[in-house]
């Protein structure tokens, strides 16, 4: 069954069309990569799915339900999380406080004005567990702004996962990372997303082919091909348009 589907999704910024009718299909439990050259509309696709933009036309379905135009907070609540290409954490808060905001949301503690948050032991415990899993426990009390690049990216990804979404969209999680950092991040994602559905946008083909069960190639706002990594590797149209240059 498809957990996420888009039907003829179109988006334009004023006169500039970016998505020309995308039919994306994500199966439950798979790790799916969306690849494509710069300007193919990958991030715009994410943004129209996750409520940053309202798509110009077309529909988005989550588990068969029409979620077109849902606001981000509503998507988060029905189990869709996302991370950002440009790190978007809470810079003045510590790593612990960052993750805790995600944990609070996961546990549905939102408008609580009566209890002290540092006295909520279950929340603290869950947050610390998460920090340990992502190897940030030692930086528990470091402000996000003072974390190293690799660590702040790990925090970025972990915030999206800490709300325990069924489906998570990761926008170029490895952007700007060194080889080692990338390897760590891939391992982290494998560990944290077990049993979840993951959609990634990625440029690094090593990451794509090591992580993805299936791949969708986006080219100038349209889907060029979708399939298993092998099929994509051997797809002539994809080679011509894109992969050929990269010598995979």
């Amino acid at each position: 069954m498809n957990i996420l589907e888009t039907k003829d999704l179109k988006h334009s910024f004023g006169p500039l069309a970016v998505l020309f009718g995308v039919d994306l299909q994500i199966e439950e439990g798979e790790r799916h990569a969306v690849i494509g050259p710069n300007g193919a509309g990958k991030t715009t696709l994410f943004n129209t799915i996750t409520g940053t933009y309202h798509p110009t036309s077309g529909k988005v379905f989550f588990k068969g339900k029409d979620i077109t135009g849902y606001k981000p907070h509503k998507l988060a609540r029905i189990g869709i999380g996302r991370s950002f290409q440009i790190t978007s954490t809470f810079m003045n808060l510590t790593a612990f406080q960052n993750i805790r905001l995600a944990i609070l949301s996961k546990d549905g503690v939102r408008f609580n004005l009566l209890r002290r948050v540092d006295k909520m032991q279950r929340i603290t415990q869950e947050t610390d567990e998460m920090l340990k899993r992502i190897n940030l426990y030692e930086d528990r009390n470091t402000p996000a702004s003072a974390l190293s690049y690799g660590k702040s990216r790990a925090l970025e990804i972990s915030m999206a996962l800490a709300t325990n979404p069924e489906l998570v969209l990761l926008d170029e999680f490895a952007a700007g990372m060194s080889k080692e950092e990338t390897a760590d991040a891939v391992a982290l994602i494998r560990k944290l997303t077990e049993g979840k559905t993951v959609v990634i946008i990625e440029h690094d083909m090593d990451v794509v082919f090591s992580l993805a069960d299936r791949i969708t190639v986006l080219h100038y706002g349209k889907i060029l091909a979708t399939g298993k990594p092998e099929e994509i590797r051997n797809n002539q149209a994809v080679k011509d348009a894109y992969l050929g240059d990269l010598e995979v």
């Binding site: 996750t50 606001k71 981000p72 907070h73 988060a76 609540r77 999380g81 996302r82 950002f84 978007s88 954490t89 809470f90 810079m91 003045n92 808060l93 406080q97 905001l101 995600a102 949301s105 996961k106 939102r110 915030m159 999206a160 709300t163």
Partner: peptide
């Protein structure tokens, strides 16, 4: 405090 720092992310976390 989260809203002051980054309202967009607060939204994406489900608040």
């Amino acid at each position: 405090v989260g809203i002051r720092d980054n309202a967009k992310r607060i939204d994406y976390l489900g608040y």
